[in-house]
Design a protein around this nucleic acid. Structure first.
Lengths: 339, 339
DNA sequence: TTGTACGCGTTATCAG
DNA sequence: CTGATAACGCGTACAA
């Protein structure tokens, strides 16, 4: 592999000049520049990036920590990050945490060892104190994460108001017994979605029937199981708000096992608007998160940090949208009942 | 940030010794080793990986090229790769090609610039000559890709026999008019699946009705559109083999639009066994690819290449499996008709 | 505008 | 078993 000195020799200049042609072409006279470029071409020279990174103590690489890449929600955010990163000359290192806390800690080592210039964490599980500690030393951005006392830039939607909107939709369709299966309650995001649900019921003067509120963890299985269990009881909901589409599908399938029709006997609203939401039968009414955009935005914020620019605000809430399809019954009535 | 020389000074040894403690501890006397480790601990020293990578001309990083990370099929393979990589001290750089050929070419630059030690390509679009050319210079492995004349190690399932199996299943359920919507025919993988379909029909003495064979490209949309079109014609299939689950779902939804019952009026077999295959209504009969394992295996092969070990064979075909669920009708008949 | 010369932090070589 | 020292290839003061 030819090195810079080879180019320099062939072009009859010094390595300094070759380096300048590569990094700051305007500082070189046109004639010499051409000679150098010609030599580069002739030798098919490629700069040794390892040497460059070492010399400049930067890697042009960012780390993306994902709880689980197989989850389409995360995959789509990663897609947005990658797009924005590569557009700006950055590469994306992917690490699956498999929801192991120690793998999140491990990523700190990565930063310390200068293996990456910065990091984006999706749904981190680390406590806020630790996150703040890392953030004070390295450029990091959070995605799909809310913070109690935000000090680190993060990208999210407003989980309270979106859940409120979803629940309200069901209430305005006439439902009095609206159930909810939560995500894991150690996650602030789940608590926020739960909060929006409760707020909506309260605002519309409906009591919260704690028997209709169950604990799950976003998954299809937890939706199915909790719903099966709920339907085995003596009083059942006429509508359910689920904090993920996967869970909504689990709920619907459980209801079908009990010979319930969707949406006539049970209305369901999901969350995320995954690709599959519109393909399912019935198609899911759901809250659409702009996942790809959230990925892009996280990377934009990280880029600012990497470039030393200041970030005015820490909360970056992107607009969500209630997508009305067939699982809630609004479309069955010929026209929407409200809005 | 403390450097190796700081550790050396504190421990009263040379940098060479510190380096040895880190990389080849057995070559250092226990006493000195302890002194050094103590100093490392006291200074909270972290080796500068950039310097190490530069010095050793290796990055402990591999590149994974994905057509589209949002596709669950690829995401799952990536999951397997990442797991195996991190288990062996390698990091995974993720690049989305968005099916742009130039991004595949770009990855070659990456290798040339020594930014990564090797590469795994998922469903590459580059021609075999180019792939062979790259492979002769750098360690690469292919996944979900078949080759006309295999010279590069690749991991796949046997697409011909699995498609044969899927089609045969439909035939043995009594279907005479078995349709097929293909993937893009510039992909060898699609051609193989098409080949298995045709072979099965031929072996069972059934004519291939070219009107029942349509061109698609794995997507839900192409399945839906082609099926809608097919159902608008005067003669229609009683069963369809789809080369992806997404497409199978599109086909089913199109059939439902035409008031057809699945599987009574139309039996469908899909491919991939994506997570949603079992959640869908009806649940999909499909060919299960061991995607995660395929990812792991690709990484194992790449590790061998990186370690200079020889790889005996180039074709690594993993076992697939026909998963019988509700979309084909076999289960409706009380018991399987065959097996 | 260009060249010289040094340093980045680690590892490998070689001598002791 | 340990130490001194020379690379690795590039970027950048500083000098010309």
């Amino acid at each position: 592999m030819p090195k810079m000195s080879d180019v320099a020799r062939l072009a009859g200049v010094s390595t300094a000049t070759v380096s300048r042609v590569l990094r700051n072409p305007d500082a070189v006279k046109t004639g010499t520049k051409e000679k150098v470029l010609e030599a580069i071409h002739q030798l098919n020279y490629q700069p040794n990036m390892l040497a460059r990174h070492f010399r400049r103590t930067e890697t042009k690489t960012i780390l993306v920590l994902v709880p689980n890449i197989i989850n389409t929600v995360f995959a789509e955010i990663v897609g947005g990050i990658e797009e924005q990163a590569s557009k700006n000359g950055y590469r994306v290192l992917l690490r699956n945490t498999a929801r192991k806390l120690e793998r999140e800690y491990g990523s700190i080592e990565h930063l310390k060892q200068r293996q990456v210039d910065g990091m984006i964490m999706l749904s981190p599980q680390l406590d806020e104190a630790t996150l703040n500690e890392i953030s004070s030393q390295f450029p990091i951005v959070l995605a799909t994460a809310n913070l109690e006392t935000p000090k680190i830039p993060f990208v999210s939607i407003d989980n309270v108001s979106s859940s409120y909107k979803a629940t309200e939709h069901l209430i305005r369709l006439g439902h009095k017994k609206v159930g909810h299966i939560t995500g894991p309650m150690d996650s602030l995001l789940s608590r926020h979605r739960n909060e929006g649900y409760r707020k909506a019921l309260g605002d519309y003067g409906l009591d919260i029937d704690e028997q209709l509120v169950r604990r799950g963890h976003f998954s299809y299985e937890s939706g199915f199981e909790q719903m099966m269990d709920m339907l085995g009881q003596n009083h059942v909901p006429t509508a359910v708000f689920a904090p993920s589409d996967e869970m909504a599908i689990g709920i619907i399938n459980a209801a079908k096992e009990h010979q319930l029709r969707i949406p006539e006997d049970l209305a369901v609203v999901g969350f995320d608007n995954i690709r599959f939401a519109s393909m399912f039968n019935p198609s899911l009414t759901t809250i659409a998160q702009p996942l790809f955009k959230m990925g892009q935005r996280s990377m934009e914020l990280l880029l600012k940090k990497l470039n030393g620019e200041s970030i005015s605000q820490t909360e970056h809430l992107l607009p969500d949208e209630l997508i009305i399809r067939d699982s809630c019954g609004a479309r069955k009535k010929g026209k929407l009942l409200h809005n």
